[in-house]
């Protein structure tokens, strides 16, 4: 087996030059995304450089407390991201709280299950396993959750009159929003299902590619990729179920009145 080829800064500069070309093209057509592209590229370089050193430190230390701090930071950043992606969000801290508690009960639980039951590294919190595993589950959960929450709040706002008439006929709050809930869950879970269905045929998933580049046996690499996809599906699914339930509890009060006044935004 061969180790991966080391890249130097010139290699990165060459790679950056094609994005620069894209930026020039976009600027020429006045699409107004050049600025975002430049900012995103710079953020990408800086963030990944920093995380490279952070991970190096974590791996060298290998202590549970550092892993826990890192996991908490990831949770906070992902929760904030869920919040800012909502066009309509709950007032006050509830908006952040829904995202954070959702990620906590889904991503953390699934990652723990993966570490303790499936992968079983020694010790179980070995950062080389714990951090990437949690990161992959959490980023997918974050996308699924924010997508489905955004969808639900918009649907409830757009269909307020219909929901009210359903309630007026004696339907429960759950019955009155059932079609919108179903639609939201579909929207959130479909990207994962589609990726799973095309994995290996259309795309070689990122983690597997990384392992292969690092010289791992492809038949071993696919095993990891398979369990990762199962964890991601579970994280996204349970995460959405939790998030939509929490949202539903906030958007209806104890008398099952639709409380869109608890939302702000736009």
């Amino acid at each position: 087996m061969t180790a991966a080829i080391d890249l130097n800064y010139w290699d990165i500069a060459f790679a950056a030059s094609i994005v620069l070309g894209l930026g020039v093209l976009l600027a020429y057509y006045r699409l107004g995304v050049t600025r975002s592209l430049v900012v995103a590229s710079i953020r990408l370089v800086i963030q990944l450089q920093v995380i490279g050193y952070v991970l190096k430190f974590l791996f060298a230390e290998g202590r549970l407390v550092y892993v826990a701090i890192m996991a908490t930071l990831m949770l906070l950043v992902a929760s904030r991201e869920i919040m800012v992606r909502q066009k309509l969000r709950l007032k006050g801290w509830a908006s952040f709280g829904v995202g954070a508690s959702t990620l906590f009960v889904s991503s953390f639980a699934v990652a723990l299950f993966g570490l303790l039951v499936v992968v079983k590294p020694e010790p179980w919190y070995l950062p080389q396993y714990a951090i990437p595993l949690l990161g992959m589950i959490m980023s997918n959960t974050m996308s699924g959750v924010s997508l489905s929450m955004d969808r639900l709040t918009s649907a409830l706002r757009d269909n307020r009159a219909i929901i009210e008439q359903r309630l007026a006929l004696g339907q429960s709050s759950r019955e009155s929003i059932q079609p919108y809930l179903r639609d939201c869950i579909r929207t959130g879970i479909m990207p994962v299902v589609n990726s799973m269905a095309t994995a290996g045929i259309v795309s070689l998933p990122g983690m597997m590619t990384g392992q292969i580049l690092a010289g791992a046996d492809p038949t071993e690499a696919v095993k990891y990729q398979i369990i990762i996809w199962f964890f991601i599906a579970a994280g996204v699914g349970f995460g959405m179920a939790t998030a939509l339930r929490l949202l539903e509890m906030r958007l209806f009060d104890d008398r099952q009145r639709l409380r869109l006044d608890r939302l702000v935004g736009e």
């Binding site: 008439q165 007026a168 004696g170 429960s172």
Partner: peptide, 19 residues
């Protein structure tokens, strides 16, 4: 219960929706 109340006290809105 909220459902009981709304079944007992029927409300007919000015604009009626069907879903």
């Amino acid at each position: 219960s909220p459902q009981e109340w709304r079944r007992t006290v029927g409300y007919l809105p000015a604009e009626i929706f069907w879903w």
